[in-house]
């Protein structure tokens, strides 16, 4: 393994993805360095979520490779992929907590599955993570009793319970009020420092992205139109990126003929 490889915890090369005959990702290539926060941005339908599924090994690409922690996950067996995933944490958009388990049982689940620690130790570890997420007072609540922001933080607590090297977070800000969203952004930055993690975030929230990212990748209709530092993003002259930064509607965003028909 070369020195460069060692610094890159994620390497994606020439990734192409299809749903049936429809191509949703076109030749995506990027690297994520150790201890970096990379934000993957794009409008709805740009292919962000599909890209995340490829990074997690939940979907096989039509072409290209995805390397996590130096290993190509596209050629791995299911067992090898499971072993690798023990070093990865994923926080899903809605938390993806199990409705039949209480908050603390959800957080404890990976430890029960993958360690031989006794019940008390597991509980202490889960409580530490809940405290970090400011959820300790709610440990016995069921997921149905938690607010949207609490669900996201709970999902994050479960994602980091195994102290993973790599953390993926899908849409941390969506559906949250600006204050809660800003709190979550701060929490993510603290996690990077406290747990020395490399973090990949999928979002369409520009403010949140600019606040936490070291580097940004922008997807547009399945094409990778930008990858670089936040300063470079601001300096970009690409109209699609400027529209996104300044929240300008796309020229083709609204079908004026259709609106005419509706109002006629």
């Amino acid at each position: 393994m070369s020195a460069t490889d060692e610094q890159n915890l994620i390497e994606v090369s020439g990734l192409v993805s299809h749903y049936g005959d429809r191509q949703v990702l076109n030749n995506i290539s990027l690297d994520v360095r150790e201890n970096e926060i990379l934000v993957i941005m794009g409008a709805s339908g740009s292919g962000k979520s599909t890209f995340l599924r490829h990074l997690l090994g939940l979907k096989a690409p039509s072409a290209g490779t995805v390397k996590l922690l130096g290993r190509d996950i596209t050629t791995m067996t299911r067992r090898e992929l499971f072993d690798l995933r023990k070093q990865i944490g994923v926080a899903f958009q809605g938390g993806a907590l199990f409705s039949s388990l209480s908050l603390i049982e959800n957080i404890e689940l990976p430890l029960h599955e993958h360690t031989v620690l006794d019940k008390d130790t597991i509980q202490i570890m889960a409580r530490m993570k809940l405290e970090m997420m400011n959820l300790l007072d709610h440990e016995h609540l069921m997921p149905s009793e938690l607010s949207g922001g609490m669900l996201k933080r709970a999902g994050l607590a479960r994602a980091v319970i195994m102290d993973p090297r790599l953390l993926f977070f899908d849409e941390p800000s969506s559906g949250l009020d600006p204050v809660t969203s800003a709190e979550l952004d701060e929490l993510i930055k603290q996690l990077r420092v406290a747990l020395n993690m490399t973090i990949v975030i999928i979002t369409h929230e520009m403010q949140s992205a600019l606040n936490i990212a070291d580097r940004v990748t922008v997807l547009h209709h399945g094409d990778q139109i930008f990858t670089g530092a936040v300063d470079e993003l601001h300096a970009s002259s690409d109209a699609r990126i400027l529209n996104m930064i300044h929240r300008r509607p796309s020229r083709h965003g609204v079908d004026s003929d259709y609106i005419d028909q509706l109002t006629r």
């Binding site: 499971f82 995933r85 023990k86 994923v90 993806a96 990976p110 599955e113 479960r158």
Partner: peptide, 17 residues
Amino acid sequence: IMRTEQQIDALECMAID
């Protein structure tokens, strides 16, 4: 519903069959 709410994906990602 577990599938639509990504709970099954979450299990896969936690290396739980």
